[in-house]
């Protein structure tokens, strides 16, 4: 069912929704961008639909709403500990198709991997409902079509922002009541069907080939280019890594907490162990690790789909202009070359 409504009406509905939901959308933080006089666009609660930045891609993904950057797990007192809590307010999140598809990857990690459920993820994820935002033509770093993540039907509402009104599709019965007064129109959202950027995915089909991929020269080039800042993984909708640590708020009161914060495999200490032991000492090796996770081994493990959804935020955020889309294509070319060489070797024997 579709509706046409003014911004004013939508804001009234928003007020109603906010009795049951915290409503999050990409918002503009003026002047808070990486560079001076640039804006930061990231998720935050909104008070009016006009605040939604729908015509630019956000710097950070909505994952921080259900997988908070810093998340307390337990609170400790003198000799008690208590699980952190969340309220029962729902979460209504304005998101794009790639992000909604990306969250399915997070679900796989947090709810399926190891046949166990992460209850901290579960308790926020269960509360989340999505408002699909149309992308229009998309942006120059997007490659969602190549990753098959340009479409989704996993949303409660879908919205098209027009200059003086909005079109809303209500997919989820639970939201129908909010729109009962509105004018009905035919509306279903449109998805992008092509991106300026396409990627070719590598087909690594044997461990022998994987070994050769490890040893490719191309990774070394990134030793001088990548500064291991981890901006790519922080921006990524599908990166799910974290580190748990404890802290004491106050030495005397002996109270503290156990919490987790996001981690990045691009950071030098991601694998650091006691005694100075660690793995993947160079930026190139770490970038290889990330690349293979995104476009090879996640799929090798969970079968259905690649981890990367092609949102392109890693390319947008990399301060060194390292394009992940380019890495994927380079890797695919190398894999094809290696396969050809191998078949020539066999033929030549």
């Amino acid at each position: 069912m579709g509706y046409s409504l003014s911004y004013g009406r939508m804001n009234e509905i928003l007020k109603e929704l906010q009795q049951n939901y915290r409503v999050y959308a990409p918002r503009r933080w003026a002047g808070r961008g990486r560079y001076s006089d640039t804006d930061l666009i990231r998720y935050g609660e909104i008070a009016a639909v006009e605040e939604v930045v729908h015509d630019e891609k956000s710097d950070f993904s909505p994952k921080e709403i259900i997988f908070p950057i810093t998340q307390p797990l337990f609170y400790f007192t003198e000799d008690e500990y208590r699980e952190s809590r969340v309220d029962d307010q729902g979460l209504l999140i304005f998101a794009r198709p790639c992000d909604i598809n990306g969250i399915r990857r997070l679900d796989t990690m947090f709810l399926k991997n190891g046949d166990s459920e992460d209850s901290y993820y579960r308790r926020l994820r269960d509360k989340a409902r999505f408002v699909l935002m149309e992308c229009g033509t998309g942006w120059d770093t997007c490659f969602c079509v190549s990753m098959g993540s340009n479409r989704t039907s996993d949303y409660s509402l879908a919205v098209r922002f027009l200059p003086d009104h909005l079109l809303v599709e209500v997919r989820d019965e639970a939201f129908k009541r909010y729109f009962s007064q509105e004018r009905e129109v035919e509306f279903t959202p449109e998805f992008v069907t092509s991106n300026p950027r396409t990627v070719r995915l590598p087909e690594i089909d044997s461990s022998g080939l994987l070994r050769k991929v490890y040893d490719l020269e191309m990774w070394k080039e990134y030793n001088s280019r990548c500064q291991s800042c981890g901006a790519c993984t922080a921006a990524c909708i599908t990166c799910s890594c974290f580190t748990t640590s404890d802290l004491i708020y106050n030495e005397n009161a002996r109270v503290g907490e156990r919490r987790r914060v996001w981690a990045s495999c691009l950071h030098e200490d991601f694998t650091a162990m006691a005694g100075g032991l660690g793995f993947r000492a160079t930026p190139g090796e770490r970038l290889r690790f990330r690349t293979l996770h995104k476009v090879y081994d996640y799929k090798a493990r969970f079968k259905e789909e690649q981890m990367c959804v092609g949102c392109g935020r890693c390319d947008d955020r990399c301060p060194e202009f390292i394009s992940f889309a380019t890495i994927i294509n380079r890797l695919s070319d190398e894999v094809e070359r290696l396969k050809k060489e191998a078949s020539q070797e066999v033929a030549g024997q």
Partner: peptide
Amino acid sequence: CGECALVCPTGAWTRNP
């Protein structure tokens, strides 16, 4: 100098506008 805001991967450091 703002170097902290330039390097921070998560936008934890930002410039006061």
